[in-house]
């Protein structure tokens, strides 16, 4: 593949689909093996965007309490 990923990934270095459930060796998703650069860029950008807070989203009264921050190790 000679295409290159566009640099629109905003600090997202790797996206690894998981978890897989094998107990003897570690697996990788086949659909990620043969991604086009266009689709790959879109996936990275989508993950980057999903990590941004969305302050403009209106509060919904029935929405559950915000999730706690991640457990930092």
């Amino acid at each position: 593949m000679s295409e290159a990923l566009e640099d629109t990934t905003d600090g997202v270095l790797v996206v690894r689909r998981g978890p897989g459930a094998n107990c003897s060796s570690i697996g990788s998703a086949v659909e990620m093996l043969f991604l086009s650069a266009t689709l790959g860029t879109a996936i990275l950008a989508a993950v980057a965007a999903s990590l941004d807070p969305k302050p403009d989203e209106p509060d919904e009264p029935d929405e559950p309490a915000p999730a706690p921050p991640p457990e930092a190790l």
Binding site: L13, V14, S28, M32, L33, G40
Partner: peptide, 17 residues
């Protein structure tokens, strides 16, 4: 059959880890 390593690395493809 695989593409270049850079693409595989970005999408978490693991060989012998």
């Amino acid at each position: 059959a695989l593409p270049e390593a850079a693409m595989l690395e970005r999408f978490g493809v693991f060989g012998c880890e």
